[in-house]
Every structure is written in C-alpha cells, then in structure tokens.
Amino acid sequence: MTQEVRAVIARAEGAPVETVTIAVPDPGPGEVVVDVRACGVCHTDLHYRQGGISDDFPFLLGHEAAGVVESVGEGVTDVAPGDFVVLNWRAVCGRCRSCLRGRPWYCFSTHNATQKMRLPDGTELTPALGIGAFAEKTLVAAGQCTKVDPDASPAAAGLLGCGVMAGIGAAVNTGQVGRGDSVAVIGCGGVGAAAVAGSSLAGAAKIIAVDIDDRKLATARKLGATHTVNAKEVDPVEAIREMTGGFGADVVIEAVGRPETYRQAFYARDLAGTVVLVGVATPEMTLELPLLDVFGRGGSLKSSWYGDCLPSRDFPMLIDLYRQGRLDLDAFVTETIALDEVEKAFERMRDGDVLRSVVVF
C-alpha cells in the first residue's frame, strides 16, 4: 500500500526547497523501502537545486543516508526488514564488462528503483542520485542498501553514502596511499577532510592540508593532517615542495574541482607521483597543460569515481573502524537539524560554516 511521508523537494531551478508530502509505493521486485534515520546535506543536493545536475525537476533531494529496512520486494535476499543499512548510489549490476572483469567498483550499468515516488497530484519525482533521502521513507534498489553494524550512529554512518566515502576512497582506493607516503590534499571541505582521514588510515607519513579557510585547516589537523597551508597567504605548490624536501608529494588529491587547483595539484606532486581528481567540475570548465610536462613528469593522473568504492566491501569495513575508534566519523557531523531546515543548511554550506549538516529523523 502506498505510504504518504514528509520530504524535501526542489520544484524549480534556484527556488528554495519545500517540505511536502510525497507518496512512496510498496517495493516491487528488487526494491526496498527504507525508514530513513539520518541524511547529510551534501553539495550535490545544492547542485540539483540549482539545476547544475539536470533539468528533471522536481527533485527529491538527499542521498547521504542511513536507515532501517522496512519492507522488501520480490527476489530481494541480501537485506531484510529490520536491517540497518547505509544507502549508496552505485548499485553494481554484476553483468557489465567492468563487473565481469572483476572491477565492480567501476560498474558501468548501476541501477536504481524502477518505480517512482510522486507528489500527491501524481507528478513523478526524480530522486537525487537515485536515492531521495530527505524523506521519512524512501524507495531504492536493493543493491543500494549495504548492511552495517546497527550500533553505529545513523548521522555518522550515513555520510559514507557520498562525501566521506568519496574522500577516503580517493586516498585509499584511487590514490593507493601507502605507509610512509607524503600526501597533499587541496581543498578541505567534507570530501577533502575525508581524504586526509583516509591518508592517515593508510599510514601516510606526511599529510599536507591546503585550503583558504583556517577553520577547515584546523579540522584537517584533527583528522590527521601533519601540516597545513593557507593558499591565500602562500603559493601552495611552493609550500608543498618545501615541506617534501623540494620534490613534491607522492600523492596529491584535488578535492575542489577547478582548473586552477588541478594545476596546483599537477605541479605539487613528485616526479612519477599521482594526482587524484575527486573534486567535481562544472561543464564549462576546461584544463590546459603543456603536453611535455604531462609526459616528462610521469606518474599517474587519475579521476576518482565515488572513491572507487565497492559499498559491500568498504562500508562495513569503515563502520568497523569507526566503532573501534580508529575513524572519527562523528567529526564530520557539524550539526544535526530537522527536515524543514535544509534550506538554512544550504546557506551555512555556502558560507563555509559546516562540514556537514545532517537531517535526523
């Protein structure tokens, strides 16, 4: 039976979000209804609201979420009612050319729920990243649910659903940071701060956090940065080189998504070093680099998709580290808010006042 729940939608480009009633259908084959317990306010939600992702309005916002499985559809066996789960937006298919080659974290055919959630007048909603979790309940594909330790805080656990996983994965999975490596992270918002934490988990000897906001640099210190650079005060490339014996860092993670900061990352790495782009650019941005420098500096230039994560592998592992006190996910939760405070959270995000506001139900 269809349920009516409260949810936050973006009805039109640039318009303030609205808290409305939506209809959530019973799960069909391969689908799950999740009772959402917490959902982080991510920059991607703001991009949806501003029309920067697509024009498929109205959007049901929210995607960094954790909750409890309420009901499952036909054929669902990996999760059951009562399971505590973190939602993900890359439900792997197991059949595409990447999955069949043993690289499911690159799955080229990820999927979402088939049915649509709707407004009371029947208007179909487009769920953000196929999730739509600024809602008391949401409908997702079963593969978007990863069962984790139920004793974890929903507010902290849900952040693995996007930004924190993207940052940790950029360091551990994509950048393959190893023991004794030097790492520089350019941009220390939620994703960059998570890249700092991931580098620390991987055993990096030197972790240089770069930002223009001293508040974010202070947070990076708490999460494992050994050095900080305020890019408003000094040239970050020269600072990183000075801190690494004049060579540059083994791995540089760009978590801003701008041509200027990517160039900084490119020239701040050591010869044969690695650049990881995890910051999300906008369509009009272009990059120009001397091809001879690309060749002559060697190494790897990589893009990190969702931290190249495999949710079934990575989410439980990171929750275990959190429960052991080795990964401070709580540090990413700046504030908890009510569902009708999402628009205010967007304002605080733009002002740089938070790592994450988290809606708690």
Rank of each mutant, 00 (worst) to 15 (best):
E70Q: 15
G143N: 02
G30V: 02
V33W: 01
E13M: 14
E4G: 00
V8W: 08
G62V: 05
G143V: 00
R313S: 06
G325S: 01
L61E: 01
P81G: 09
D55F: 00
A272E: 05
H47Q: 07
D320T: 13
P290C: 05
A249G: 06
I208P: 07
R97K: 09
G257K: 06
A65Y: 02
A12E: 15
E233K: 15
A193Y: 00
K232S: 15
A220S: 15
G163E: 09
L217R: 06
T21C: 00
D35A: 12
A225S: 11
L139C: 04
F108K: 14
R348H: 04
L160F: 11
C309W: 00
I207R: 06
R326M: 09
A156D: 10
P290Q: 09
L310N: 08
A133F: 09
E74M: 04
T114S: 14
E18W: 05
L291A: 15
I186S: 01
D330N: 13
V140T: 00
R356H: 13
Q115Y: 01
G14F: 11
A128I: 03
G180Q: 10
G40K: 01
A7V: 11
L46K: 03
V210D: 11
L139Q: 05
M117P: 05
L223T: 02
E31Q: 12
A23Q: 13
W89Y: 15
L291W: 10
L329K: 05
G75S: 05
G28N: 05
G94K: 12
V358M: 13
V359T: 01
G248D: 00
A23K: 09
C93H: 10
G279D: 07
F57P: 03
V34G: 03
G30K: 04
T21E: 15
G161P: 02
P316I: 08
G190L: 04
A272F: 10
E70N: 05
R90A: 05
R269Q: 08
L119Y: 01
T21G: 06
C162R: 08
C39F: 10
T110K: 04
D314C: 06
T123L: 12
L271W: 14
V342C: 06
I53Y: 09
G82P: 05
G67L: 07
A231Q: 02
A133Y: 07
D330T: 11
R49W: 00
F332W: 10
K222T: 13
A66I: 01
Y262R: 10
E70G: 13
V24T: 06
P58W: 02
N112V: 12
V185T: 10
I131R: 07
A184V: 09
M1I: 04
K232W: 00
L287E: 08
V69D: 08
R11A: 14
R350T: 10
G299V: 11
T44W: 03
V33D: 04
T261L: 10
E347G: 00
T77F: 02
A281Q: 08
A345L: 07
